[in-house]
Design a protein around this nucleic acid. Structure first.
Lengths: 138, 138
DNA sequence: TTAATTGCAAATCCTTTGCAGATTC
DNA sequence: GAATCTGCAAAGGATTTGCAATTAA
């Protein structure tokens, strides 16, 4: 009863998927399916919105992209790995600072190892009040 | 030109708001507006779903509750502060481990200070493959 | 009495699905 | 030719909004 090779979803390299992959590669930050779709349209690539959703989902499942949810509740994607940063967002004015967290990266690794997890990615979000807003009594 | 006291949104202590606050207090983890609504119904409290949404939003804006998005994309809420934990989620089977991160807490504080932010809350999420799934070739 | 709050239902918005036709293997 | 993949439009779900009635201050 061959069951071993079950998981090899083998995504076919279609024009649309190539386009989406490229869009993800060019982008620096997380993007929603809708944003990617618009971006492709703008670039002249004709790809259906549903296809974008389906492809991103498949890629996420295959571990090819990282997923997160933006404050607006949209699901957003970003190509995996490479040194990334986190965000420090002001709850008052929405101002965003990019921060890196060597300490966090290390911690994430340690925790993953401790629990026997592999291929661990992480998302960190800091939300607070910036000095200006705090001064304004926000 | 009095403008100073502008931000005091002064939420009125209505029956509904009290009920929602209580529900949040009892809960240990993040809950969606819908879950809270159901929970209230079950407890005999009659509160409109829209009110739950509006109240939670207001509380979030006032910094009285923390907000996050669950994997399903729903917005979830939890009362602020008190020692909390983070999650290590398996991308293969969905298994979830609770982890604490003194290191992360410290880092968050440091970063906040460095950027002049105050009252900073944070969310951390680790996603990877658990040992079992990794062994299964997921 | 005045301004805030609520409920309900309608309206939005993001995302998923059904299905016939196009595409890759 | 068989299994995938696409696009379109319809369907789903969560969240928001309009508005008249209700309630707190």
């Amino acid at each position: 009863m061959p069951d071993i090779d079950e998981r090899s979803t083998a995504l076919r390299p279609t024009r649309q998927r190539r386009a989406i992959t490229d869009a993800l590669f060019v982008a620096t930050d997380f993007q929603s399916a809708q944003e990617i779709h618009e971006s492709l349209r703008g670039a002249g690539e004709k790809v259906g919105l549903a296809t974008v959703y389906r492809t991103l989902q498949a890629m996420a499942e295959a571990g090819e992209v990282d997923v997160r949810h933006n404050p607006a509740g949209e699901t957003t994607y970003r190509r995996c790995s490479d040194s990334h940063h986190h965000h420090l967002v002001c709850r008052g004015c929405g101002r965003t600072e990019e921060v890196t967290g060597p300490a966090v990266e290390a911690w994430a690794h340690a925790v993953a190892e401790q629990f026997g997890f592999v291929d661990v990615h992480h998302t960190v979000e800091l939300v607070g009040l910036c000095a200006a807003c705090a001064a304004a009594g926000r």
